[in-house]
Design a protein around this nucleic acid. Structure first.
Length: 269
DNA sequence: AAGCGTAGCAACCGCCATTAT
DNA sequence: AATAATGGCGGTTGCTACGCT
């Protein structure tokens, strides 16, 4: 069954939100919450579909939203999480308080992806010119602008001890359980790596496959991520230049595993 | 100063997963 | 169990400001 788009009903507004609409939505949610997005527009008097209201609230009006340019630390985090998760923007956003999946997706496509690509190219061609000056973020009366230092001077690949294995400019999605994707030849002790196949991510499979001792996870088409579950902290540090800005790395994996497989026993650190 | 191309970002669309009936 | 309703996510689009010539 394919449903018609929710905004197809006659008379519903589309496009940019007017300040008055923002006001109505904000005050309605502050008073009544948003139990039912579909019913919200009708109850609040907005001529918008529920989906549009939800998006506006989540991406723009929410009080805990952090506006302004991304900090260097945030960008590093996005890059690293993207290496691990692929285009799972909501999962990445969950690790960046105040940032939305949409915002992260935008900054990835408009900024970070190109920067990584340039970085890779300049690594292969040391004589190539540096990145051009970045644009200043559009001013926004609602924003607290965070001044961004010169990103052209950054080379994230230089921080990656497995740079020989990283061709990360064109990740599509997390691919799992396909050892044919492993192209990096200088990764040590692959046989010690746990393999996670598709079934790992489904809760239904947990009872059937409670151990993962002989499995591994491939993160992109080209780059395998290694983290033996028995000692994945050390492995993570070795393969991803684990630094002080990423101290929550273990929390991150813990979140992933506990959310996905409550019954799996996690190693103690 | 004007025109044009591009980057950045908000918003939409379509699909899938989950929940309710 | 089947179907419908709803929420959520990722991909994509279109508008606008910016930067270059």
């Amino acid at each position: 069954m394919v449903r018609a788009p929710c905004c197809e009903k006659m008379g519903l507004e589309k496009g940019p939100w007017a300040p008055e609409e923002d006001q109505i939505l904000t005050s309605y949610i502050e008073k009544h919450g948003h139990g039912n997005w579909r019913a919200l527009p009708k109850q609040s008097g907005l001529l918008r579909c529920g989906k549009s209201c939800r998006l506006r609230w989540i991406n723009y009006l929410r009080p805990d939203i952090k506006r302004g340019n991304f900090t260097i630390e945030e960008e590093e985090t996005i890059i690293k999480l993207h290496e691990m998760l692929g285009n799972r923007w909501s999962a990445i956003a969950a690790k960046l308080p105040g940032r939305t999946d949409n915002e992260i997706k935008n900054v990835w496509h408009t900024n970070l992806k190109k920067r990584l690509l340039k970085s890779d190219q300049s690594n292969s061609n040391p004589n190539s010119k540096r990145a051009t000056k970045p644009r200043i973020k559009r001013s926004d009366s609602n924003s607290s602008i965070i001044t961004q230092s010169e990103p052209a001077n950054l080379n994230f690949r230089e921080m990656d001890t497995t740079s020989a294995c990283t061709s990360s400019s064109d990740f599509s999605s997390v691919t799992v359980g396909d050892s044919k994707n492993i192209k990096c030849e200088d990764i040590e002790s692959l046989e010690t790596m746990p393999v996670i196949d598709e079934s790992f991510w489904s809760e239904a499979a947990i009872d059937e496959t409670p151990t993962m001792s002989s499995q591994s996870l491939t993160i992109s088409n080209e780059m395998p991520l290694q983290y033996p579950f028995a000692n994945y902290e050390e492995s993570f540090q070795q393969s991803h230049a684990y630094d002080s800005n990423f101290d929550d790395g273990m929390d991150f994996w813990y979140d992933i595993f506990t959310r996905t497989a409550d019954s799996i026993e996690l190693p103690e650190f």
